[in-house]
Design a binder for these strands. Structure first.
Length: 867
DNA sequence: GCAAGGTC
């Protein structure tokens, strides 16, 4: 039997389709897809199926000195048990194995890992390697006709990276966390990629902090052709001209840095009634269509549509899995030779939404696509596959992103655009009154799109024109308006996510598949917040401490050095041990400095952590109010002067608090945001929230079902335990933490309560729930800054509403487990499994028998994850 | 529980 191993299931299926001529079928082995035809089996891995780590005796952070990790052994262990098991089973039966993982360094390493697993199960089966950079019939068949061997040197280069990253990352992360006494979920991490990325953000913030704005002035005039001024044409045919001069270096400048000069110039300009054209320059500029999409450029384009890097990639992943676009993780910006542009356009022409533009392009004789600078072997650039989603297959966001990919492909085969630029310089006579002896010079830059070219099919880039009329030298123009604008230089802007990813790419850190994840990691670690990301004080502390004691971990030079070493390994000039040991030696010397300054580092980091928790002054004693964590694990605001000062304020019970830059004008406290995944919300000033709750009166809506009159009555009717009527009533209440609920007026003697949404105005209607004798509620949302009211939310009876909510929760609980989607959850429900507890109790074999397409191993996998 | 790299 021949066994083919690919990097992912999707590739396995497509390669099987090509090699079998469409005749393959599939089976499951250990819960993993295996494709088969004739005497051939094909299995897809899931990237790395083994991972590197230290032996278990190094697991306890407190028992092991971080420095000991430097010389600790590094092991490889299976991380995808099912796939490893399936691979071993197949390897035993194989007479020949072909490794067909991705054609890049990491693919070579994944292939070598597969090779080792195969070897363990089968000592002498021959193992070949095939390489192709796109899964097309031609490339795949050619590669399989002429197989090669695994490049063990290239794989070793990848292993060097694994070891060095683990050792540096783990040792330094543990050191920083231990020195700041931050264990558990709040550890302090550093690494070869996250370090420099974080420093990029922190450095920019430092520039912003240090920025000292400078004042300057700009002067403008609106000019009009003289014949227009006579009547017919209106003033809106006027065009703008800006004052400019030659600065000391002889370069053209518009900003005037001295107020007195600006005023002197303006005095002349304001009095002027005409300006004479002194030069007219016309240029035509060719505007070439953009290159094919690689991952970074795709993220950039999607971000200009308003999607975060993370979201854009997740949608691209879905579009790829569904078969509509090619693999979204690629560095390549050159289409493969055998991409048939014309055929692809013909397929796309069938789409109702953007098919017309494909038709237009098909009329062109030449469809030669643009090429970018990067030509790699990993995967083709991202382009549509030609398979069209139907209207119901995609949601609005996915459709928008899919259209972006389609239109980018259009653009790459579309013609150039042509612009005409027109620069007009005119002069206003100064008669010696201006700053210099000569006349004032004004310039106007006009541009006009003369050939729309690719913009017709790719509407995402600006095609704004600026109007400047046809004038000739010596022509006299009227000055119809003038403006004098005082401005300030602006600090540099924070990096947005996509700019950050582009900069990482330029610096050579991270990869196409990880850069957006790295940014997400910085959010998760509490290093950055908001979008565009702003660094927290902790981030500033970590970068500063690293710069002083372990500079390499925040410098891109570490990657540059590693990259050079990896190339040397790949060329056979160095070996893996040598490179790893050199790196370990450097780390040993880093640790000498660190160990000496352990306390100083700890103090620095602790001070930063505290700064991130500081809200502002305590109204009672003037010390700092801090975000604190109670013994029960909930957050609240407490005074740094405790126990002398016992002032506190509550915080919402959901999420982890994060202090925003914004401060409350009244109380001088930072606003608080509660991070809770999709339920993240801004709480605002906790003092204001508490005050608002104190001022808001409770609204009674009925009897308490536990201790009110009606509870006593229904108990007496015999459908409940005897209840003594205490006269409790249900009321809509606002708590000082900002939460809102329906609760008993006898609280805390009776703690009956039902949750209500935090936001929106609640209207108590006349309609009553027959079952619970409570009024129906309607929530009016609609932001203050939003125009008009959103559709009001008919919440109904609060008891019924809460029951429905709980039912929904139970249904979706399973979906929080990795690998269980909506459809699977639905199937499981059919088998009587509707929450984590029942899933864990289920007998894997029984359950697998009841649910289609699910094996006992998959069930065991879920059960492990459900813990 | 640490990294970064695959992939879902």
């Amino acid at each position: 039997m021949d066994l083919i191993i690919t990097e992912k299931d999707n590739a396995a299926r497509r390669i099987s389709d090509i090699l079998s001529g469409g005749s393959y079928d599939s089976e499951r082995r250990a819960g993993v897809n295996v494709y088969r035809w004739g005497g051939t089996r094909c299995i897809g891995l899931s990237g790395h199926v083994v991972g590197v780590d230290f032996p278990a005796e190094y697991d306890d952070w407190r028992d092991v000195e971080p420095v000991e990790l430097i010389d600790a052994p590094v092991q490889k262990r299976p991380t995808q048990e099912n796939i490893v098991r399936a691979l071993r089973l197949l390897a035993r039966e194989a007479d020949r194995v072909v490794v067909a993982t991705d054609y890049d360094r990491e693919g070579e390493l994944i292939g070598k890992e597969a090779y080792e697993l195969v070897r363990e199960a089968n000592e002498d089966v021959p193992v070949d390697r095939v390489r192709f950079s796109s899964i097309t019939e031609r490339e795949v068949t050619e590669a399989f006709d002429d197989p090669d061997d695994i490049d063990f040197d290239l794989a070793a280069a990848g292993e060097a990276r694994q070891i060095i990253d683990l050792v540096w990352g783990a040792a330094l992360t543990r050191f920083l966390s231990l020195s700041a006494r931050q264990l558990g979920d709040d550890f302090i991490s550093v690494g070869r990629v996250q370090g420099p990325t974080l420093k990029l953000i922190v450095d920019r913030e430092r520039e912003i902090q240090a920025f000292d704005p400078e004042e300057y002035w700009e002067l403008f005039a609106d000019l009009l052709k003289a014949d227009d001024a006579d009547g017919e044409a209106a003033d809106d045919d006027a065009f703008e001209a800006q004052f400019f001069y030659e600065d000391d270096d002889g370069t053209e400048a518009e900003r005037v840095w001295a107020e007195a000069t600006a005023e002197a110039v303006y005095d002349v300009l304001r009095e002027a009634s005409s300006a004479t054209v002194s030069s007219v320059r016309r240029r035509s500029r060719t505007d070439q269509p953009p290159a094919p999409f690689n991952t970074t450029q795709f993220i950039r384009a999607a971000s200009s549509l308003g999607y975060s890097a993370q979201r854009a990639m997740s949608m691209a992943e879905d579009l790829y899995t569904a078969g509509y676009i090619t693999y979204p993780r690629t560095d390549n910006t050159v289409y493969p030779e055998d991409l048939e542009e014309r055929e692809l356009l013909e397929e796309l022409a069938a789409d109702s939404r953007f098919g017309d533009d494909a038709e237009t392009l098909l009329e062109l004789d030449d469809l030669t696509p643009t090429e970018g600078d990067e030509e790699t072997t990993d995967h083709p650039p991202i382009h549509p596959t030609g398979e069209l989603p139907s209207a119901s297959d995609l949601d609005d966001d996915e459709r928008e992103v899919y259209e972006l990919v389609v239109r980018r492909f259009y653009a790459t085969v579309a013609p150039d655009a042509q612009w005409e630029h027109l620069r007009v310089v005119s002069e206003v006579a100064a008669d010696g009154a201006g700053p210099d002896d000569g006349p004032l010079t004004l310039k106007s830059n006009g541009k006009r799109l003369v050939e729309e070219g690719y913009h017709a099919v790719y509407p995402y880039l600006s095609t704004n024109e600026s109007y400047v009329p046809d004038v000739s030298e010596g022509e006299v123009l009227s000055v119809v308006d003038t403006a004098f604008e005082a401005k300030q230089t602006q600090p540099p802007r924070r990096y947005g996510q996509s700019r950050l990813i582009e900069t990482m790419e330029e610096m050579g850190i991270g990869t196409k598949a990880t850069r957006h994840d790295v940014i997400q990691k910085l959010y998760d670690r509490g290093y950055i917040e908001s979008d565009p990301p702003r660094p927290t004080k902790l981030a500033e502390g970590v970068v500063e401490a690293s710069e002083r004691f372990a500079d390499r971990i925040v410098s891109d030079e570490m990657t540059a050095q590693l990259e050079a070493d990896m190339q040397a390994i790949a060329r056979g000039e160095k070996d893996l041990e040598e490179v790893a040991d050199e790196s370990r030696e450097i780390l040993v010397s880093v640790f000498e400095g660190l160990t000496e300054s352990r306390e100083e580092v700890g103090d620095m980091l602790q001070e930063s952590l505290k700064a991130d928790k500081r809200l502002g002054p305590c109204p009672e004693c003037g010390e700092d109010l801090l975000v604190r964590k109670s013994r029960h694990g909930s957050y609240f605001v407490g005074c740094d002067g405790y126990p002398d000062c016992e002032y506190t304020l509550p915080l919402p019970s959901t999420g982890k608090p994060l202090l925003l830059e914004e401060e409350c004008e009244e109380h001088g406290l930072h606003h608080v945001k509660m991070l809770a995944g999709r339920k993240t919300f801004v709480h605002g000033c906790p003092q204001c929230k508490a005050d608002e709750a104190d001022d808001e009166a409770d609204v009674v809506i009925g009897d308490c079902p536990e201790c009110g009159e009606s509870a006593a009555r229904s108990a007496a009717d015999g459908d409940g335990e005897a209840v003594e009527a205490e006269g409790g009533e249900l009321a809509i209440k606002r708590l000082r933490s900002g939460a809102r609920l329906v609760g008993c007026t006898r609280y805390p003697d009776c703690d009956y309560s039902l949750p209500l949404p935090r936001r929106g105005e609640i209207e108590v209607t006349d309609e009553t729930c027959e079952e619970h004798d409570l009024p129906h509620l309607v929530v009016h949302t609609g932001d203050e800054d939003d125009e008009g009211d959103d559709e009001p939310w008919e919440l109904g009876c609060p008891i019924c509403n809460y029951r429905e909510y709980q039912a929904r929760q139970a249904g979706s609980e399973l979906e929080t487990i990795d690998g269980i989607g909506e459809k699977t959850a639905e199937k499981l429900k059919g088998a009587g499994i509707d929450d984590r507890a029942s899933l864990k109790e289920a007998e894997p074999d029984d359950l697998a028998g009841q649910v289609d397409g699910v094996g006992p191993d998959t069930v065991r996998d879920w059960q492990a994850k459900a813990d």
